[in-house]
Amino acid sequence: MYATERQQRIAGIVIDEGRVSVTGLSALFGVAQETIRRDLDQLQADGVLLRVHGGAVPASRTSSAEQSLAAREATATEAKERIAAAAIDLIPRGLGGAVHIDAGTTAARAARLLAVREDGNASLTLITNSITTAAALSHLSAPAVRVIGGRLRALTAAAVGAGAIEQITGLRPDVAIIGTNAVHADFGLSTPDEAEAEVKRAAVSSARRVIVVADASKLGEESLVRFCSLEDIDALVTDGEPDPELRDALRAADVDLVRA
């Protein structure tokens, strides 16, 4: 097999599986590990993947990579609906308090489900820094919607910056539903953008109870900027099965693991 053909196959494998190892590829193709390392170096130079310890991951899953809101809305839609439904099941009916809704796409689904749940929404207030979530709820007479203002980040349609943080820290919602780009046993919860991380950090700190929503692709991953530790959250709602290390870390942090 020519090197270019092997590299094309490696590129396909890393995109399909999300991660490859040097030892695994060496066994698969029957070539030396040093040959595989050269292949990975070339694919990294071509922008296809990122070399990590022992292997490689797709370039799209690097710590600073971030999809647009539209792209994320079209990803794992069924899983996100199940996760959102399971998340609002953790919120007592007739709560009558306030729920902070993060700017993530799964959190936005939870907001829409929560808004139409028949449980006395007239006394519920939804707080959000997501412009798209606020717009989606604007036609409803109840629950009340409080919009956090600030600098608009176009990629995610989220209000960020000092103004947003000041408003969030001045509130004390009963529950916060928070999205994340990554959940890791050691690194905690993280996201690619520092401004988004600061807003999430403020929301986590201000709420009495924190529910994190994350589909299976986020588990065991690390993004660029950490915004809280596992000890800072109360529940993780996901459609995936955490690896043993993450599962043990969640248990040690007393985090309720809810599978949707």
Rank of each mutant, 00 (worst) to 15 (best):
P58M: 13
A158Y: 02
R109W: 15
R82S: 05
S123A: 14
L25W: 02
E231K: 04
D174E: 13
S190E: 01
P244H: 12
E221T: 09
I13R: 11
R6V: 03
A32P: 12
G30E: 01
V175P: 02
R72W: 11
S26C: 05
A111T: 08
D186V: 12
A87H: 10
G188S: 01
I15G: 00
Q167L: 05
D234S: 09
T77I: 07
D102G: 12
A158E: 14
S217L: 13
G55A: 11
E66F: 12
A11I: 02
R172I: 03
I168G: 08
A252R: 15
A252D: 09
A154I: 11
A76P: 08
G18K: 15
E5L: 05
E5S: 03
R51H: 02
G149P: 11
I127A: 04
S64N: 10
G120L: 03
R259Y: 12
A45Y: 06
S21N: 07
T191I: 13
N121Q: 14
A65C: 06
V213G: 06
V204Y: 06
A176H: 13
L189F: 15
S217N: 09
A108W: 00
L124H: 03
P242S: 05
F187Y: 14
L40V: 13
R251L: 09
K80H: 09
G97S: 03
D232A: 11
L126F: 06
V14F: 02
A79M: 14
A159E: 07
S60W: 11
G170Q: 03
L140M: 08
S64R: 11
D248Q: 13
S229D: 14
Q8P: 00
D41F: 09
A27G: 08
A71E: 11
D41P: 05
K200Q: 14
A158Q: 15
V22T: 14
T75V: 07
R51G: 08
